[in-house]
Amino acid sequence: MRKVGFILHPGYSPMSLAVSTVFELANLQADEPVYDVRMLSAKGGPVRTSVGFEVMTAPFAGETLDLLVVGGSMEDATPEVIAFVRTAPQFARRIAAPCVGALVLAEAGLLDGRRATTHWMYARDMAKRYPRVKVEEDRIFIADGPIWTSAGMTAGIDLALALVEEDLGLVAARQVARKLVVYHRRSGGQSQFSTLLELEPKSDRMQAVLTYAKRNLADRLSVEDLAERAHLSPRQFSRAFQSETGQTPAKAIEHLRLEAARTLMENTAHPIDVVAQQTGFADRDRMRRAFLRAYGQPPGTVRRAAYRHGASDRIEA
Rank of each mutant, 00 (worst) to 15 (best):
L168F: 05
E107T: 10
A213P: 09
E244H: 01
F91W: 14
A123L: 01
E224P: 04
E137S: 15
G169V: 07
A306C: 00
L217W: 12
F84M: 12
E54D: 11
E107C: 01
D285K: 14
L40H: 07
D225I: 06
E254C: 02
V81P: 10
E254L: 08
P79Q: 05
R185S: 13
G44M: 02
Q90C: 00
A311V: 15
R289Q: 11
H309I: 09
I157N: 02
Q90V: 08
G44E: 06
V182Y: 04
P10W: 05
R284E: 13
Q277M: 14
A88V: 00
A77C: 07
M126H: 11
A127W: 04
A96F: 02
L163S: 04
G280W: 11
P249F: 07
A143P: 03
S243A: 11
F193A: 12
A102F: 00
V274W: 01
P271S: 10
T87P: 00
A230L: 05
L292G: 02
K3N: 13
V4E: 06
L25P: 03
A250E: 15
Y130N: 08
V100T: 14
R86D: 07
R284D: 09
A252T: 08
A260I: 03
S13P: 00
T78D: 15
D285S: 13
A102C: 02
S203D: 01
N216W: 08
A290G: 11
R314M: 10
V176R: 05
L110P: 07
S194Y: 06
L68E: 06
D167C: 09
A18N: 11
A260R: 14
